[in-house]
Write a protein that binds this DNA or RNA. Structure first.
Ligand SMILES: [Mn+2]
Ligand SMILES: [Mn+2]
Ligand SMILES: [Mn+2]
Ligand SMILES: [Mn+2]
Lengths: 236, 236
DNA sequence: ATGGATTATTAGGCAAACCTAATATATAAT
DNA sequence: ATTATATATTAGGTTTGCCTAATAATCCAT
């Protein structure tokens, strides 16, 4: 007999979370997954074993997890749904930027491919979500995300905000308050010693951002202000 | 710690199901609830006790269940969400009539009141769903549904289809195939003996409908064709 | 190489929603 | 009043997804 419950929502969130973390490092420590999902490492470890048995990921002990091709395809399907809903919520329902991430994170699990594709049609097949992140294709392929973290820039360097790496609503609210959003010019002015917070200039306002926050703001660097060493890194 | 899962979807489906059945009879036998949800009576009974403890309904053994005011309010909130999504899916995404019921039944549980009200705004505050059923208010009040079941009409009687009482996608597909939809004229031509199926005329086509199906097609009767006995019933 | 920190596993539990099989109770029909 | 039927409860079990506490294995830095 089939149950009333979906019992696939957890699985989907694991895959999505791993895919999102994978753009920062690969393989992903199980600890990171647990922390992001707000559960114990034991529970995460259990579930990861189950997903490994089903060939959706591979776990190398003491290293971390990597999605298989099928796992990544599935993850990107969920991400596609979330980002399309984000577009709908902002563009059509006029819900603010910092709210749509969490709202879409609930809808994504209740959406099949028929609705997804009809929605994509209706929205005119957008290529990025309101936070600037690319929307995967119907086939579950995602263009490589662009930009480098603001946190990697040094004083004097700056550029245009390309996207906000997907993360909790709290961070988005924090950024929304300071009017830090995709498309805007931003410049690093100062970095406190001992890997401390960055002082940044956006519009005509100065703000101090913690390293964790700065790591999620992805920049298209302004090449003029950029040190040549970093230029090499980016191009080569 | 909070769980990843909602664990409220079941509760919502119980309340909604009971509210929908309540328009046919009151109180509702627990058996009906179990059957509609496709679960055992034991499971339904368990859950109904839990909902009773939380004052969302009242259960009189060997009679059935009635929603409390709070229970009905909650149920109508879910119904509002479902029917607004149904409008969205048909009007904006151009998904057919018979599909939207089930699709919206998944979205309804992933939708909070912010999204619901923004959606209602966006759709221009529709008053009925694509199946003709009334959409409850923000406060959880629903206008009394109109019409009498097609199954109660006798040969020669007819009228306009007002709405299809909410039920499975199978029934909707069945009706969609025969072009039986809200707004159309329909007339009973014949009833087979021993409470058998009805032969009906819609457009220029004749169809034979089982009693169960006919019970879900709600009619605004054409008073000229109507027997005076039934007229009394309706008006008085 | 060795000790301390990180990572993984084991053991034992819990709650929500389901299930079947068996039993008990109330209502309805003869 | 008795019996048959419908309804309810009890008992015991499953799966999913989470938990804590304790232990074991590995990695890394000195
Ligand atoms: Mn989600
Ligand atoms: Mn986004
Ligand atoms: Mn539903
Ligand atoms: Mn409807």
């Amino acid at each position: 007999m089939k149950h009333l419950h979906d019992f696939g929502e957890s699985e989907e969130m694991y895959l999505k979370t791993i895919a999102e973390l994978a753009s920062k490092q690969d393989p992903i420590p199980v600890t990171w997954v647990a922390e992001r999902l707000g559960i114990s490492t034991v529970s995460a470890s259990e579930m990861i074993h189950r997903l490994e048995n089903r060939r959706l990921l591979e776990h190398t002990p003491y290293k971390g997890v990597c999605l298989t091709d099928e796992g990544r395809r599935r993850a990107n399907t969920i991400i596609r749904r979330q980002r399309l809903w984000e577009c709908f919520l902002t563009d059509k329902l006029a819900i603010t930027w910092d709210h749509v991430h969490d709202l879409a994170c609930r809808l994504e699990h209740a959406t099949d491919s028929m609705v997804t594709e009809a929605l994509a049609d209706y929205l005119g097949h957008p290529t990025t979500c309101p936070h600037g992140n690319p929307i995967p294709s119907t086939e579950g392929e995602m263009p490589p995300p662009e930009g480098i973290p603001l946190g990697d820039l040094t004083p004097g360097e700056g550029g245009v905000i390309l996207r906000i790496h997907p993360v909790s609503a709290l961070l988005l609210r924090h950024l929304a308050e300071k009017r830090i959003e995709p498309g805007k010019e931003i410049e690093v002015r100062e970095i406190a010693p001992f890997d401390g917070p960055q002082s940044i200039l956006i519009g005509d306002e100065m703000h101090v951002l913690g390293r964790e926050v700065a790591a999620h703001i992805m920049i298209q660097p302004n090449t003029e202000t950029l040190g040549s060493r970093k230029l090499m890194e980016i191009l080569g």
